[in-house]
């Protein structure tokens, strides 16, 4: 079962990767507009990715509790199923 923090890390990774893609495109494609592509495309996605990553760090307590609840619920369901005749 995937943990909440793993999902957030994936999302952060995807956002940063998209931002890096925009940055590489803006460096190879050189009309004056490429600077706006860098700021809006790359800057926005990379900053969002960093924020999602930082949020995943500070929300570890909440996600650990959510993961524990989900694991406990799964265990109860498994025990309930095993006790049925």
């Amino acid at each position: 079962m995937e943990k909440a923090i793993d999902r957030r890390l994936r999302r952060a990774g995807v956002l940063v990767l998209i931002g890096l893609g925009f940055e590489a495109a803006s460096l190879f494609w050189n009309p004056p507009f490429s600077f706006f592509l860098f700021i809006i495309g790359s800057g926005l996605f990379v900053v969002l990715g960093i924020l999602v990553f930082l949020y995943s760090l500070v929300s570890r307590g909440e996600s650990a509790a959510a993961d524990a609840d989900a694991a406990g619920e799964g265990l109860r369901q498994a025990q309930g199923a095993s006790l049925k005749p």
Binding site: I5, D6, R10, G13, V14, V16, L17
Partner: peptide, 8 residues
């Protein structure tokens, strides 16, 4: 980033 996406 790809490493973290595939192996978080």
């Amino acid at each position: 980033c790809l490493l973290l996406i595939f192996r978080p």
